[in-house]
Measured scan of single mutants.
Amino acid sequence: SASLEDVKTAVLGLLVILQTKLYTLPASHATRVYEMLVSHIQLHYKHSYTLPIASSIRLQAFDFLLLLRADSLHRLGLPNKDGVVRFSPYCVCDYMEPERGSEKKTSGPLSPPTGPPGPAPAGPAVRLGSVPYSLLFRVLLQCLKQESDWKVLKLVLGRLPESLRYKVLIFTSPCSVDQLCSALCSMLSGPKTLERLRGAPEGF
């Protein structure tokens, strides 16, 4: 439990870093931090981490990651405290083949985003970082199938509809809506759902 406290501190630090690096160059920093966060949550489900502190780590990670939004130009952003989304000039939600690297070039400044813009690109060529939603999407499927803490599952179920409104997140990387529907149906009809959940409301 003591070591998990250190892990929790590290994860919180990564969330803060991602919130900053999403809007700064090099964009590969945001890509790497995002991948680290998603990989860490995957390990929770792989090794069945069920301690309360592990659940709190997942809760905080999902609470942040499910706020990711994308505009029509595929640029990622996060809402501010007033709910207004600021889109990044440097990070996009497109999935890119590994051989192309985590970044790609664009020939010049991008068109203005639909929300308040981030800082304008400084040079004639900007390297865009790929932060594909499919990585998070796979972890969300694991959550629906394996999550043991009701608070975490409730958060994910509550945030998913709003995330799905931003269709560009889903359609720019390999996210299977069929698998999502299947996971939701299995969660509702499967007898093991109630068996594994802690803290579920009576009558769920």
Rank of each mutant, 00 (worst) to 15 (best):
E202T: 09
P89D: 12
S111E: 15
S72K: 15
S176H: 10
D82E: 11
L136V: 11
R58I: 00
S163I: 15
V33F: 01
M96K: 10
L110E: 14
P161A: 14
K21D: 01
V38G: 04
G129S: 10
R86D: 07
A2P: 05
G77M: 04
I170G: 03
C175W: 03
P191I: 09
S107H: 13
G118M: 11
L164E: 01
L25R: 13
T50A: 10
V92P: 03
G203W: 05
V152A: 00
T31E: 15
R196H: 07
K151G: 11
F204I: 12
Y95G: 08
L76E: 02
A54L: 04
L43Q: 14
T172A: 07
S186W: 07
S173K: 03
L67C: 14
Q179T: 12
V85S: 07
G13I: 00
I41Q: 00
A200E: 07
G101T: 14
Y166F: 11
K21I: 00
A70M: 03
L144V: 09
D149C: 06
P52Q: 07
E195A: 12
S173P: 03
S186K: 15
R196L: 06
L76T: 06
D82I: 07
D82C: 08
S1I: 09
R159S: 05
L14C: 09
K104W: 15
V168T: 15
M187I: 11
V152H: 02
L194T: 09
G118D: 15
R32N: 03
K21P: 00
L76Y: 06
E162Q: 09
V16I: 09
E99N: 11
P116V: 14
E147G: 00
E103C: 14
S3V: 07
H47Y: 10
L140W: 03
I53F: 05
V85C: 08
W150K: 00
V85E: 05
L157G: 00
L169M: 11
Y95H: 08
P116D: 15
Q19C: 05
Q19Y: 05
P191C: 13
P161M: 07
P109M: 13
L184V: 09
K167Y: 04
I41P: 00
V84W: 09
L197G: 03
K145L: 12
T114F: 15
P109I: 15
P161F: 06
L73D: 08
E97D: 13
V177M: 12
V139W: 01
K145T: 15
H40Y: 02
Q19H: 08
G13M: 00
Q42S: 14
K151W: 08
P52H: 05
K151T: 15
L4K: 05
L140P: 00
V131R: 03
E5K: 06
P109W: 14
L194P: 06
S3A: 11
P161L: 06
Y49P: 02
L68D: 02
D149K: 02
V92K: 09
P132W: 02
R75G: 03
A27V: 12
G199V: 07
P132Q: 07
V16K: 15
L160W: 01
Y133V: 05
R86W: 06
P116W: 15
P89L: 05
M187K: 01
L18S: 02
S102I: 14
P124S: 10
K145N: 10
F87W: 08
I41W: 00
V16W: 08
A54E: 01
D71Y: 00
V156Y: 00
S28Y: 11
S148N: 09
S48Q: 15
V131L: 14
G203A: 09
C143L: 02
R69A: 04
P201G: 13
L15H: 07
K105I: 13
C181T: 09
F171N: 14
L135Q: 13
S55G: 12
S28A: 12
A70E: 02
K105N: 15
V16R: 15
G158A: 12
V92T: 13
L68I: 13
L18D: 01
L68R: 03
G77H: 03
R69K: 07
E35A: 12
L25Y: 14
V139Q: 07
K46C: 12
C93H: 02
E35Q: 12
R196I: 06
S56M: 13
F137E: 03
P201Y: 09
L25P: 15
R75M: 04
P26K: 02
L188S: 04
L160C: 01
V139Y: 01
P191L: 08
Y95D: 14
L12M: 13
V84C: 10
A70P: 09
T172L: 03
I57A: 01
P89Q: 10
Y49W: 08
L25N: 10
Y34E: 02
C185W: 04
Y166R: 05
P201M: 07
V16H: 15
T50K: 08
L164P: 00
G13T: 00
L25K: 12
T24A: 10
V11S: 06
R198I: 10
C93K: 03
R86E: 08
G158S: 14
S28T: 10
Y90N: 06
A183Q: 15
P201C: 13
C181D: 00
E35M: 12
D178M: 05
S3R: 08
F204S: 04
S1N: 12
L188M: 12
L188A: 08
R86P: 04
E97L: 13
R127P: 12
I41D: 00
Y34I: 05
Y45R: 00
A30Q: 02
L4V: 11
V92E: 04
C91K: 03
K192L: 08
E103Y: 12
P89G: 06
D94T: 10
G115A: 13
S88I: 02
K8R: 12
P52T: 06
A54M: 03
L73F: 12
T31V: 11
Y45W: 01
D94K: 07
G199A: 08
R127S: 13
G115Y: 14
K154W: 04
T172N: 08
H40F: 00
I57W: 00
G83W: 04
R165W: 04
Q146N: 13
W150H: 02
L67P: 05
L25I: 13
C143N: 01
L76P: 07
V84D: 12
L73Q: 11
L155W: 05
D6V: 03
E35H: 14
E162Y: 08
K151M: 12
A2K: 12
M96W: 14
V177F: 04
H47T: 05
R69T: 06
L110R: 09
E5G: 10
L155M: 13
E99Y: 12
A61T: 14
T20I: 09
V7G: 01
R32G: 02
A27K: 04
F87N: 04
G118S: 12
E162L: 09
L4E: 03
A200P: 07
S186T: 13
A70L: 02
S176L: 05
A200K: 14
L141D: 02
L67T: 11
P52S: 07
G13L: 00
S163A: 13
L37Y: 00
Q142N: 13
N80K: 09
T20K: 09
S1T: 09
R86V: 10
M96Y: 14
V7R: 02
L67N: 15
R196K: 09
S134N: 10
T31K: 11
R69C: 05
L12I: 14
R86A: 09
V168N: 09
